[in-house]
Amino acid sequence: MNALLVVAAVVGAALVGALAVGYRRGNTPAVVNTAAVLCLTLLPPAAGWLFGDGPATAGLPSLTFATAVAGFLHALGMLGRYESVGWWDHLTHTISAALLAALLYAGLLVLAPSIAAAGALLGTLALGVLWEVGELIAREVAERYDIEPVLVHYGRRDTALDLVFDAVGAGLVVVLDLRLFHPVAEWAVRASGIA
């Protein structure tokens, strides 16, 4: 078994622990977000299982590991780190944006190499803006129905900083030319019949 998958399984167990803590505390946003992250963490191994191991799925352990780590840091944030540790939100946005940018970058390197860098940066920022809009919508829906929002909006300054750190994460991927998920992108493009 791949060492990254073993570590990802350990982080996945920690995610289950975070889910239990959120449930015990009655922290609905932490429970919902951690459950979503657990589902996302299971997608790469499920793809490997469905499509078989081999060169085509060689990047899946890295994707599983990166998703589990980013998700665990987010889960810790939902359990209180966002309020108690001033830089925690910046860390999670940087890491999550880097993961997203690495996936976009890999896909664009396969489909349209000439725009891979710009596309990864712009795509990550566009999705970051959508996330921030989602936080606003979650707040509005929660206020309207008098429920706890599953995503928390901390204000305009926080939104601006979130987007700055999204850009930092994406920029690191492009500047360092990180091709961690290139095999996954090649496999996905072949499997989908796009190219």
Rank of each mutant, 00 (worst) to 15 (best):
N2K: 03
L4N: 03
V6G: 10
V7F: 08
V11C: 11
G12F: 09
L15A: 10
V16F: 10
G17H: 02
G17T: 12
V21F: 14
Y23D: 07
P29G: 11
V32P: 00
V32L: 06
T34R: 09
T34M: 06
A36L: 14
A36W: 08
L38H: 02
L43T: 12
P44R: 08
G48D: 01
G48R: 14
W49D: 08
L50I: 10
F51G: 08
G54N: 08
T67N: 03
A68L: 09
A70P: 00
H74C: 01
L76W: 07
L76C: 13
L76V: 10
G80F: 03
R81V: 07
S84I: 07
G86Q: 06
W87F: 14
S96Q: 00
A97Y: 09
A102P: 02
L103N: 07
L104V: 06
L104M: 13
A106S: 11
G107D: 00
L111W: 12
I115H: 01
A117I: 11
L121V: 11
V129D: 05
E132K: 03
G134V: 10
A138Q: 06
E140V: 10
E140N: 12
E143G: 14
R144L: 13
E148Q: 15
E148M: 13
P149E: 11
P149Q: 10
V152R: 02
H153Q: 11
H153V: 02
R157T: 14
D158R: 06
T159G: 02
L161Q: 05
D166I: 00
V168N: 00
G169V: 01
G169T: 07
V173H: 04
L176I: 11
D177P: 01
L178M: 13
L178Y: 07
H182D: 15
P183T: 04
V189F: 04
R190L: 13
R190I: 01
G193P: 06
I194V: 15
A195H: 08
